[in-house]
Amino acid sequence: MDLISEAIRSMRIGFAGARLVRQTSPGGLRFSAFDGSGFHIVTYGACWLISHDDPVPLRPGDIVLTSYGAEHGLSEAPCALRDLPLVEMGPHPPATGPSSFEFLCGAYWLDSGHAPQYLRALPALIAVSPDYDRNPEMRSLVDLLAATVATAEPGAAVTRRALLDLILVQVLRQWHEEDASRWPEAAHPGIAAALREIHENPHRQWTVDRLSEVARMRRTAFSRLFTTVVGQAPIGYLTGWRLSRAAELLRETDAPLASIAPRVGYSTEFALSAAFRREYGVSPGRFRRAATGQLEDRTFYR
């Protein structure tokens, strides 16, 4: 299983957007929790990533990935997250005047539900410092994204979505290469085998017993280790992944619900519809209509 491709693919059930933010007033700003995933790329000045953990210094070129939309902030100096003002919502252009730091934001935002299951197994905030000399492709991607957020030319929205995908691939690849043990699958070969089966064959009628057989572990030990490593019990994770795949198929295809249901492990479209509504808060039909009617370039801030 290609872990990075799975992570990127799972983001695509949301709409994509990007913008440039210039911090012209003293202090910093805070981002409330949101349903989706995104990143910040520091393009000018130095700042600090503020969360509920210790502040992390950021320099130009550093990238912060918000795996599943956790609350966080960027500030000129270390401080408490609660002391930072919330970002003003809306499609505002970059502020004018001298700035202490600037950054590009990109995001996949979900109108319903929450960040895809796979990304919720990653740390809430991931900071990386790309080596742009060794990886000039990354510099080109950042420059292209900066150029596209400054234009309204035809095709810009599609270009931005592609650039978000490519930048996220680079961020996750570097994070993985720095320490492969960070990925949940690396914790135990049995857990890796079970996750692979869940991701590649969600249509199969999995039970904890069958997944533990795949992992070659005793049921109780498997369930305990899976929950510890992934952060969720096996069946809960399986259900989340099935519904994430269903959401992806609803967004990207015109396949009827009756044909999607067996592909993601549900016996009938009614069973899928009920589970989907519990997870995302809307019916599959309403989700599809909203997805196909969305503008692909809605702002990261609403």
Rank of each mutant, 00 (worst) to 15 (best):
L211K: 09
D54Q: 14
P26Q: 07
A146R: 15
R242P: 10
P91Q: 11
L164F: 10
L238K: 03
V142A: 14
R224Y: 00
M138Y: 05
G73P: 08
V56A: 08
R216H: 04
E177S: 12
R82N: 13
P60H: 11
Q170V: 04
Q294A: 14
R219I: 01
G113L: 13
Y266H: 10
R182P: 02
E6N: 10
I63V: 15
F226L: 05
G73H: 04
Y68T: 07
L164D: 06
R9V: 00
Y301W: 08
P98R: 15
Y108E: 03
F222Q: 07
A156T: 15
A121Y: 06
V230H: 10
A274Q: 13
I260V: 09
S223G: 09
L250M: 11
S51C: 13
S10G: 12
S283W: 06
R245C: 12
R288G: 01
D165K: 10
E153K: 13
R30Q: 10
M217D: 02
E137N: 12
R302F: 10
M138W: 06
Q205W: 06
A124F: 06
F300H: 10
G38E: 03
R286A: 11
A33M: 01
R204D: 04
G265P: 11
Y301C: 06
T253N: 05
F222G: 05
S25C: 03
R302M: 07
V169P: 00
E177D: 15
V229K: 07
R224A: 02
V149F: 09
L141Q: 12
Y44A: 15
A247Q: 00
E213V: 02
